[in-house]
Each structure stands twice: as structure tokens, then as C-alpha cells.
């Protein structure tokens, strides 16, 4: 099987997974205690008739499976339903909120990869030296500290105490500089970074720590490989061995972990958005849960599940591309 066919195959495989997730969320969202219509009508004098009228209007009086099929029919056409509370279409709501979340998650990953890989390599190279010990302690702290707590600490230090960086909100690079009253693109860019820095570190630390530990272990193992011994025996400089011979083999597990950790990263994004007051999907999700806004809960769950599945597929393909031993599922 070629890489292209493998890719198609993997995406096709994802469809039943997504359908399963949709059923599960639909049922769970509808079984949650609390009546959305009553909640919506809070403070309004409403009689039974009015409630039934609203339920009929939104189709809430029909059986669950019918509503589910309806929902899915809409979903494939890009219609994710309507939010009772905000009186807007869910797709619109999500579209307006997905940008900041993606920006946050992707930059957190960029930060994690850019730091963890070099640090992991150096730690492996200087195994059992002071650098290694320090980095291992840092990684241990990173793995065991919740991201929201890191976020709060970062705000206290860099925003409140030192006043170097803003503590809330993001600057969206895709909006024009004028929206923020910025003086041209340079300032716009700088402000984007300044706002992004703390939430990015808060969300990225866990990933960085996890990846660094894996990178270190993998590099240590790879450096002990016979192929490294062979390269040394043929006069390959140590730098090249580190960067090429040992490196490439060691990255395979990293790729898998990056994909799988997308779930913790997306979960962490919800809390991070909360701490840093960022108007992304996470905030929307939180609000929707509090308000029992089914359609929004459904919509966001589906989007996050899809992002996760796509992330895993991309990493799988990257793995298959880098590791020649993967035969693209030919044996099946």
C-alpha cells in the first residue's frame, strides 16, 4: 500500500470512531439531569403550555433516536444545530471561537517540541551529569504540576509582580492591527507574542516535560545501539551521530506520543483559557455545560474529537513515513 492509500484508509477508519463518539455524546448530553427549557426560561413566568410549545419548536418532544438522526443529517451538511441560549447557530459560534484555541494548542506544542527535544538530547548525552539531574527534576515537576496552577503562578510572577507580560486575553494575529490600535504589523506581532507567551508556557509545560523524558530515554537507548557503535568505528563525528544516526531512530516514539497527548492538551486548553480569560472553545464549552446548552456541547465535543482523531492520524502517517519498517497495514 502506498502512502496515499494508507492515508485514505486511515481517514476512512476514523469515520466509525467519530460516529461512535457522536452517539455517546448525544445520549450523555440528553441524559444529563436538568431541563434546558426551564433553565432557559428562568425568571420568566411560564406555564406548562409554553414549555411544551418551546419543546415542540426545538423538536425536543420527539424520541431520542429521531433527534439523533436529524442531528447527524444536519451535521454532514455542516449544520450543527442552534444554540438556545445565544440564539446563534452552533457552527457560527464554534467558528468564532476555534481560532484562539488552535493558536493556543499549536503554540503550546511548538514550545514543547522546541524545548523538549534539544533538552532531552543533551540530557541523554550528558547522562548522570549535573545537567541531566537538573533536567530530570524539572521534568518531574512539569509532569506532576497541573497546567492551571502553572498558569496562575506565571500570572502572579510575570504579570502581577514584574508587570512584564499581560495576564489576560489574546491578540489574534488574523485580525488587523487597527482593531487593537497597533502601530503596524511589527507591534501587532510583538503584542501577539506577548499575550501568547504565558498561556503557551502554562499549557505547554506538561507536554514539554513528558516529551523530554521520552526523548532522553529514547536517545540513551539509541546511542547504545550497535549502529551507533558501527558509525563510530567508521569515523563518523559524534555530532553527526547525535543529530542523524541516533536521532532519527529515537524520534519514532516521540511522534506517537505527540499524537496521543493531543487529548491532554485539548483538555488542558479549557482550563488554561479559563485562567487567562481567553475566549476560545474551552470557555464556550464551560459556559455551555453550565447552561445545559446541548447543541453547543455536542458541537464542541464533535469538533474536539475530530481534531484529536485527525491529530492521531497525522502522527500515524508521519510515523509510517519516517519508519521504513511500517508496511502500511499490508499484512491485514
Amino acid at each position: 500500500m502506498g502512502l496515499l492509500r494508507y492515508t485514505t484508509y486511515r481517514f476512512a477508519q476514523a469515520i466509525p470512531v467519530l460516529i461512535g463518539i457522536s452517539i455517546l455524546t448525544f445520549v450523555l448530553a440528553n441524559l444529563t439531569p436538568g431541563d434546558p427549557v426551564r433553565l432557559m426560561l428562568q425568571g420568566v413566568e411560564a406555564d406548562q403550555e409554553m414549555i411544551e410549545q418551546i419543546e415542540a419548536q426545538y423538536g425536543l418532544d420527539r424520541p431520542l433516536y429521531e433527534r439523533y438522526l436529524d442531528y447527524m443529517a444536519g451535521l454532514v451538511q455542516g449544520d450543527m444545530g442552534h444554540s438556545f441560549h445565544r440564539n446563534r447557530s452552533v457552527s457560527e459560534l464554534i467558528a468564532s471561537r476555534i481560532g484562539p484555541t488552535l493558536l493556543l494548542v499549536l503554540s503550546a506544542y511548538a514550545f514543547a517540541l522546541a524545548t523538549s527535544i534539544p533538552l532531552g538530547i543533551i540530557a541523554a548525552k550528558r547522562r548522570n551529569e549535573p545537567f541531566d539531574h537538573v533536567s530530570r527534576i524539572v521534568a518531574l515537576i512539569g509532569v506532576s504540576t497541573p497546567s492551571f496552577w502553572i498558569g496562575i503562578m506565571l500570572i502572579l510572577i510575570f504579570a502581577v509582580q514584574l508587570g512584564w507580560l499581560p495576564s489576560a486575553g489574546l491578540v489574534y494575529p488574523w485580525w488587523s492591527p487597527e482593531t487593537y490600535g497597533h502601530d503596524g504589523y511589527v507591534e501587532h506581532f510583538v503584542e501577539t507574542i506577548r499575550h501568547l507567551l504565558l498561556p503557551m508556557i502554562a499549557l505547554g509545560t506538561l507536554q514539554m516535560a513528558t516529551l523530554m523524558r521520552v526523548e532522553r530515554t529514547q536517545m540513551i537507548e539509541s546511542l547504545q545501539g550497535e549502529y551507533v557503535k558501527l558509525a563510530r568505528a567508521y569515523g563518523v563525528p559524534e555530532r553527526t551521530i547525535l543529530r542523524k544516526h541516533a536521532f532519527q531512530v529515537a524520534q519514532l516514539p516521540i511522534i506517537t506520543i505527540v499524537g496521543l497527548n493531543l487529548s491532554t492538551a485539548l483538555g488542558g486548553a479549557v482550563l488554561t483559557e479559563f485562567v487567562f480569560n481567553i475566549n476560545g472553545l474551552g470557555r464556550l464549552f464551560y459556559d455551555a455545560i453550565v447552561q445545559l446548552d446541548y447543541q453547543v456541547i455536542m458541537g464542541i465535543t464533535m469538533i474536539i474529537a475530530t481534531m484529536f482523531v485527525i491529530g492521531v492520524i497525522i502522527t500515524d502517517i508521519a510515523y509510517a513515513y519516517i519508519d521504513p519498517r511500517v508496511t502500511y497495514g499490508e499484512a491485514e
Binding site: 545501539g225 550497535e226 549502529y227 557503535k229 568505528a233 544516526h245 532519527q248 531512530v249 519508519d323 521504513p324
Partner: peptide, 12 residues
């Protein structure tokens, strides 16, 4: 080397 299975780098 003695072990031809391990001596070549699997990813090149």
C-alpha cells in the same frame, strides 16, 4: 561487527 541484524540503522 558480529550482529548484522542490529548493526545497520533501521531508518536509513
Amino acid at each position: 561487527f558480529q550482529d548484522p541484524m542490529e548493526s545497520l540503522n533501521p531508518v536509513f
